[in-house]
Design a protein around this nucleic acid. Structure first.
Lengths: 366, 366
DNA sequence: CTGTTAGCGCATTCAC
DNA sequence: GTGAATGCGCTAACAG
């Protein structure tokens, strides 16, 4: 059996309460006693049983998720994943509230962060906007010892504890490499469509894309960046203009959202030369376009993984314990037509399932 | 507060012991009493606290992992991940033993499966070999109500509970699509290098690859399959022969292991036309070759994720509870030079880390 | 400053 | 068939 608090108490010749005080670094223990206990702890190789501790504490973790509002498919998917986590709350001992704020609006975000602070949650997850005011608001939370995690888009220069999202520079570089190789010998300019340069993830993707394009594929001119505010209607208008202005266009990299507009514009462009299109985030729209051949590659981050990871990390930070780095690395997923996962309907495998399993659990989309 | 066993007992007008008997479907309860309790349970919406239950039971999960021996880098990485899980055993309440058997040897695998059965573990994870004898051995375990999970390579037709691995047909299709597009206009035959057609993952990759190549890129002739037994020395010899026999070769898809041999053969092939190379599994060798431009794409499955998922699923099956399907989907990772993750050194984030975070936690390999 | 004691939610002996 | 009592490993009152 692994050692318990009783074993420590016996080994150190003190009572349970004293052991507990040392373990939880509470005051009221003489230095000599504390040292005696600490020595006993690592002499017998004690590791605390977190489950038992949480049981005794009836610990719950009040968490706040701050997400952009609007009809951005990816963000709504993210919100759905948070709601799914709320469904698991009794098991995971969480108490999650969702706050939505208008996209690309730093003031609203600051207000939401400050409001969250009032409630002294065990942790806050936020889709950040790059701005000094937001950094200050995040640091105010940290000053109150509230763990903060940035989700999807990071906030450099802040004291946030962790970032749950993909490496967006690598994402941009990957898009450029695939674009360049897919274009092969073909010539023609490449357009980049962004949401807003206010958010760090978009800027980083652009930086990575531009770096590899200019370095490895200088033959393709980069057209001026188009900012569509992640708004499908605006995106459609802007893309249509670009296509009309540059009929010899070879590729489009859409590094933000609003891809419904992009797809609509592409659909209306009949019998022109093919364009290599790379977009971000697997939604029902991009999935259909990938299957239909309108989009060549979709770069994705798994919203479910991000939310689960965010919760694990915030809980760990609240408890002051280490997290498994490898498990929390959010992968950049690359989808082409051939490795699309099945559409996620019922996500759980039922218990006591029996019988044959001729059909693979994972498969392709036809 | 969420309802507890006490609440059920009160609501049903029985004692804790009776509630427990119903909850754990043990005998010795009259049907009327049982129904009374069951009604109370879903009337007040009770969900069992698994952590508390495990605490009371002092539950540990003895698990057996059966892996191929030999110096296959990927398999050794897998074993390292199992050892890492052994390090987490006290926390995860597991008691994991590792058994290695010679690769591609069905008899040895059957013996290992039967030996595992003698010890009545809470679950068995096995890298399967396709063979009726192995299927029978797996089904013997299942007959003893021991959950079985196939790892990396599946075993169709068996009663295994779950498969922790990638969709290998999709992997093959993806390899073909990327190969075809990367080759662009270039012509020339394509070689396929496998380990052994005895294992299902290799066969499935081949099927997927062949399907897309013949359908979408009929211009490239597929050379006869080369089976290298995942042995670097043999692979090097065979690949050298192929390169010598077909100097006009355009691409190589290595769907098995032994890539050290492939890389060695490629290195010795000076100033010939470039070959598009796609291989499986990110190891130190394939990583270096990707960075050096010898390999174009590496398709990977995250061994750490596979092992953690296997343990979660086996524990869940042992307890007869549902698993989160989405969390257990093993992704097919696509790596090119630009999205290689950092080499994994220290994997854990330390608690109480403070200070600035100008440097991203994830990044590119230069 | 330190020790005693009573739970957290559940499982499991034992009596009845 | 059913119930009461005890303990899993830990925390948190409350005494001393």
């Amino acid at each position: 059996m692994r050692p318990t608090v009783h074993d420590i108490a016996a080994a150190a010749g003190v009572s349970l309460a004293t052991v507990d005080r040392v373990l939880n670094q509470r005051a009221g223990v003489r230095t000599v006693t504390r040292e005696k206990v600490e020595q006993a702890i690592d002499r017998i190789g004690y590791v605390r049983d977190v489950a038992a501790a949480n049981l005794a504490k009836s610990r719950v973790y009040p968490l706040v998720f701050i997400l952009p509002s609007g009809d951005n498919s990816f963000m709504r998917g993210l919100e759905a994943q948070v709601r799914a986590a709320i469904g698991r709350s009794p098991v995971e001992r969480t108490d999650i509230s969702i706050v939505t704020v208008p996209a690309f609006n730093a003031d609203a975000l600051v207000a939401a962060l400050d409001a969250a602070r009032e409630k002294f949650p065990a942790g806050v997850a936020v889709v950040a906007i790059d701005s000094p005011d937001v950094i200050a608001a995040v640091d105010r939370l940290r000053a109150d010892h509230i763990p903060v995690l940035t989700l999807v888009s990071d906030l450099a220069g802040s004291k946030r504890d962790h970032f749950a999202g993909v490496d967006n520079i690598a994402a941009g570089r990957t898009a450029a490499s695939l674009m360049g190789r897919f274009l092969g010998g073909r010539s023609g300019p490449v357009a980049v469509l962004a949401g807003s340069m206010l958010v760090r993830d978009h800027r980083e993707r652009l930086d990575g894309f531009r770096a590899v394009m200019t370095e490895n594929f200088p033959g393709h001119v980069l057209l001026p960046i188009v900012e569509g505010q992640d708004d499908p209607a605006l995106v459609e208008r802007l893309v249509s203009q670009v296509l009309a202005a540059s009929p010899e266009i070879a590729g489009i990299y859409s590094l933000g959202a609003g891809n419904r507009g992009l797809i609509a514009a592409l659909k209306r462009r009949k019998n022109a030369a093919p364009v290599c299109v790379i977009a971000h985030e697997l939604t029902q729209h991009t999935r259909a376009a990938l299957n239909g051949g309108l989009i060549d590659v979709v770069l994705n981050q798994d919203a479910g993984h991000e939310v689960r990871s965010a919760i694990r990390v915030l809980k760990a930070k609240a408890d002051g314990v280490a997290v498994l780095g490898a498990q929390e690395r959010i992968r950049l997923e690359i989808f082409i037509k051939d490795n699309l996962p099945f559409e996620q309907g019922s996500n759980t495998e039922m218990p006591f399932e029996q019988g044959s399993n001729q059909a693979p659990e994972q498969g392709r989309q036809d």
